[in-house]
Design a protein around this nucleic acid. Structure first.
Lengths: 233, 233
DNA sequence: TATCCGTCGATTGTCGACAATCGACTTGAC
DNA sequence: GTCAAGTCGATTGTCGACAATCGACGGATA
């Protein structure tokens, strides 16, 4: 590997600014649980720790606010978002609305090459189900499946809305600790959705997606209420 | 009226920061058409004109970016959002998804005191339909009706999503110039929705809302394509 | 002892200045 | 005349410092 001529592919290199790098670091830290819910995010402390000024940290925090990972109180600063059971239920109800509409549109007039991508993503889900992969990887693989659907729907608004709640969703799942006992079972629950899409059966796809998300909602909220009894989030 | 003891109601006074004031001014300027689509928003110029520093302007611009009023290009700055006919159609399709789900939830388990508010808002629509009210007032009254539905649905996500696209919607309507020839007719098209809600008839409410939004979509996109032929947006 | 008020440290809100980057213009060679 | 490279002005990206504000602590008072 030559370092001067990284000849590989000449795509545009990381033109990602400092703000986005800070945002990525912060979101990783929050989703992975290093920063607990309710934790205060002092601009000065973060800036000093990352070796930057407060300005990029502040902008990054506002970005994360839109992603629902942090809340902002005027003259008080940023705090890691905490969830109530009701908020969590509302989140999943909203996901159902968005993703059902997305999958219907995908069948109606969406990109046909989405189906192979979905099948490939199910393979990925099985691969990361093997031991040796941490939970964050599994959650992100799961989210990627749903992202593909919203992306293939054809209306960019679905993808944009999905991205807005994606990190929140990841965070809530990570807060719980695990979704299914067997990650392979989680991977299999995606199969009926793809089959219905492939068949062009919109009602079946809707039902499959609804069932998939509704089961997830039940599991997450139930587990969340159980956890909430132990330690207040 | 004593100025020292503005005894009226002792609610918390305008603690709205400089950022939000700037954002409000900018959004007004954009929606009202003072800043044309594609116009560059120079931080320095705006800051100088408003008598502030660049920092609040920058934050306000990022807020407006989330509302879809401005776009941001790294190292290039902020620009007033411009729409393609497809984007406009996607916006209205998305509104249909959100507001249909909202109205269904409103009937299912929403706040019952929303119905009187909706009736009152229809009265407002008729009032602002009279001569002497500018178009922005009419558009905002229309949006308020739909906001009430999303607010009363019970799941704050619907309201939050609505707010995110509310300014965009206002902007697109203002770009066109007018929606209906007779504003009273516009007010009347809201009546069937409220009636269906009051009757607790979810399918009828869905149909009424769909029809309402679908007509608006047709009118807006048609008018938009017509306008686009004359002056490129 | 409980409550209220003033003080204080810490954090955010805002600012002006410098560095990095971009797009347009000029210049030059072919 | 066309295209490429180099230069320049303007704008954004980032920074450090000062002012405004908040919540907590401590002391005075009833």
């Amino acid at each position: 590997m030559d370092v001067d001529t990284d000849a590989g592919e000449l795509g545009p290199l990381d033109r990602e600014g400092l703000v986005q790098r800070v945002a990525r670091r912060l979101s990783k830290a929050i989703v992975s649980g290093q920063l607990p819910a309710g934790q205060r995010l002092s601009e000065s402390v973060i800036a000093r720790r990352l070796g930057t000024s407060r300005a990029p940290v502040r902008e990054a925090a506002r970005l994360l606010e839109n992603s629902g990972l942090v809340t902002y109180q005027p003259n008080r600063g940023f705090f890691v978002r905490s969830f109530t059971p009701t908020e969590l239920d509302n989140l999943y109800e909203f996901r159902i609305v968005i993703e059902l509409a997305a999958v219907r549109r995908l069948i109606r007039e969406g990109d046909r090459q989405t189906v192979p991508a979905l099948c490939a993503q199910i393979d990925v889900l099985h691969r990361v189900a093997e031991p040796g992969h941490d939970m964050l990887t599994q959650v992100e693989a799961d989210m990627q499946f749903h992202r593909l659907i919203c992306n293939g729907a054809g209306n960019p608004r679905f993808l944009a809305t999905f991205e807005q709640i994606a990190l929140e969703t990841e965070l809530t799942i990570m807060l719980i600790g695990k979704l299914y006992d067997d990650a392979h079972r989680l991977a299999d629950t995606h199969v009926p959705i793809v089959e219905a899409i492939q068949a062009g059966d919109a009602p079946a796809a809707s039902d499959a997606m609804f069932h998939h998300l509704d089961v997830a909602r039940s599991l997450v909220t139930e587990q969340f209420r159980k956890l909430e009894g132990e330690k207040p989030l």
